[in-house]
């Protein structure tokens, strides 16, 4: 059996308690559902001495449907979200939610956790024995990057299914700091294209996700070899609003690749074709997931073509 290393575990009930623990143990790992963190501790990828659970902080677990926006607490379980009637109406989001892992995992996994998950790499998500035999890597073990030897940055991949959808929908997040002050920013601002430091929260806690309610076309296409359990090897979210086209893609870089353009008004299909080519040329997946990088690029292109075909057929605008 893979065994967890020993650590001290705390379970605060309030934000105040939480921040006082964070101040006392700055290297502590935060845990919610644990579906990302626990396997990594078992494999020795993350070796915390202190773990702080936020599962019991009630202020983070809610869903509010308002006139102009949907507000979801970071602790909302994915499975609860996928069963929510309002969420079900946002078809692309519902598809993305249902595509994450398996129903059993989604019973524990939270939306905040999905948005803040660790980056992944086939040289990193392995047992300690394997990584030791390999010689470790840049992300863990202070050695050379195994995917891009000689590189001074890590290329581990960000594989959230929910992030690209929310970014394409122009969603915002609410962060809360140790003084309990709240800050509202665009979701894409918390991501950084670096495999090791891909999350930029500046010591704050992710409290809430806000999705604007408006008219839009949304589709999510996920590349993986089977129809369950796997992470996206390319997760393509396409949103068309009245005046803009948003494309966001996970699984091909250390953050979320996104491109947002105003609809030019003249030839829509010409603009789309140019956009697809631009995306194809810009994305640079590395050979550190399951499928080869060039294949993932090609599928992204095929997914985009299909997404816009579906948009044209939907006649939503």
């Amino acid at each position: 059996m893979l065994k967890l290393k020993e650590f001290e575990f705390f379970s605060p009930y309030t934000c105040e308690e939480l921040f006082s623990l964070i101040k006392k143990y700055p290297e502590a790992k935060i845990i919610a559902g644990g579906t990302d963190l626990i396997p990594k501790i078992k494999r020795g990828q993350i070796e915390p001495n202190y773990v702080i659970s936020i599962l019991y902080i009630k202020e983070f677990d809610f869903i509010k449907i308002e006139e102009n926006e949907i507000r979801i607490g970071a602790l909302k379980k994915l499975r609860e979200l996928e069963k929510n009637e309002e969420i079900k109406k946002i078809k692309g989001l519902h598809i993305a939610l249902k595509s994450v892992a398996t129903p059993i995992i989604r019973n524990s996994a939270t939306i905040g956790g999905n948005l803040l998950q660790d980056t992944r790499c086939k040289f990193y998500d392995k047992s300690k024995f394997w990584r030791e035999a390999l010689g470790y890597c840049l992300k863990k073990g202070d050695a050379e990057c195994r995917v891009a030897p000689g590189s001074n940055r890590c290329f581990a991949v960000f594989c959230s299914d929910i992030a690209p959808i929310l970014i394409a929908l122009d969603s915002e997040v609410v962060l809360i700091d140790s003084d309990l002050k709240e800050q509202r920013i665009k979701l894409e601002e918390i991501y950084r294209d670096d495999g090791i430091n891909h999350i930029n929260l500046n010591g704050k806690i992710l409290k809430e996700i806000i999705i604007p309610r408006e008219k839009f076309f949304l589709t999510y296409k996920k590349l993986r070899i089977r129809d369950t359990i796997d992470f996206p090897e390319a997760g393509v979210a396409v949103v068309v609003k009245k005046e803009s086209i948003n494309i966001a893609i996970s699984g091909i870089s250390s953050s979320i690749f996104y491109l947002k353009e105003k609809i030019s008004g003249s030839d829509f299909n010409l603009q789309i074709n140019k956009l697809i080519e631009e995306v194809y040329n810009s994305i640079k997946p590395m050979d550190n997931l399951y499928f080869p990088p060039l294949y993932r690029k090609k599928v992204v292109r095929n997914f985009l073509v299909k997404a816009f075909k579906e948009f044209n057929e939907s006649e939503i605008f």
């Binding site: 086939k122 998500d125 070899i225 089977r226 129809d227 369950t228 359990i229 796997d230 399951y290």
Partner: peptide, 8 residues
Amino acid sequence: FLDYKTLT
């Protein structure tokens, strides 16, 4: 089982 792919 996550890396070694089998059908479901």
